[in-house]
Simulated assay, not measured.
Amino acid sequence: MLARLAQILRSLWWRHGFGARRTPPGGLVHLGQIRSDPRYVLECRVRSLTGAVYLGDSQALCRVLGRYKMFVDTRDRGLGSHLLLDGYWEIWLTRLIARAVRPGMACVDVGANLGYYALLMADLAGPRGRVLAIEPNPAVARLLQASLDVNGYGPRAEVMAVALGDGSDGTGFLAIPHNEPKNAALVAGAAAGHFAAHAAVVEVPVLAFDSLAEAWPRIDLVKIDAEGAEDAILRGMAAMLRRDRPLLILEFNHARPYDGAAVLAELLGIYGAVHRLDSAHGVLPSSIAAVLAATDGEDQLLVFGDAARLHGIGGP
Rank of each mutant, 00 (worst) to 15 (best):
G228L: 09
T50M: 06
A125V: 04
L144C: 00
R130T: 04
G80H: 02
F209M: 13
G272Y: 01
A213T: 05
I8M: 14
A185R: 15
M121V: 05
R218M: 04
P285C: 12
Q33S: 09
D278P: 10
T94E: 11
M240N: 07
Y258I: 14
P316M: 09
L241T: 07
G165P: 12
Y54Q: 13
P103A: 12
D259S: 13
V72S: 02
A184H: 00
A307G: 15
D220G: 05
T50W: 03
H178T: 15
L234P: 09
A52N: 09
V46M: 03
L132Y: 02
Q145T: 01
G78W: 10
L119A: 08
P257M: 14
N113D: 02
A273R: 12
G111P: 02
K182Q: 12
R235V: 07
A280W: 11
A215L: 07
V64P: 01
L267G: 04
A307E: 15
S168H: 10
W14A: 14
A125I: 02
Y258H: 15
G87R: 00
K182R: 10
A100P: 04
P127C: 05
G272A: 04
A200R: 15
A199S: 15
L207V: 06
Q33G: 09
G19M: 09
M237K: 09
A52T: 14
L292P: 08
F209L: 15
L174D: 02
A188C: 12
Y68L: 03
G17D: 12
T23R: 13
R218A: 10
L310N: 08
W216M: 12
V274Y: 09
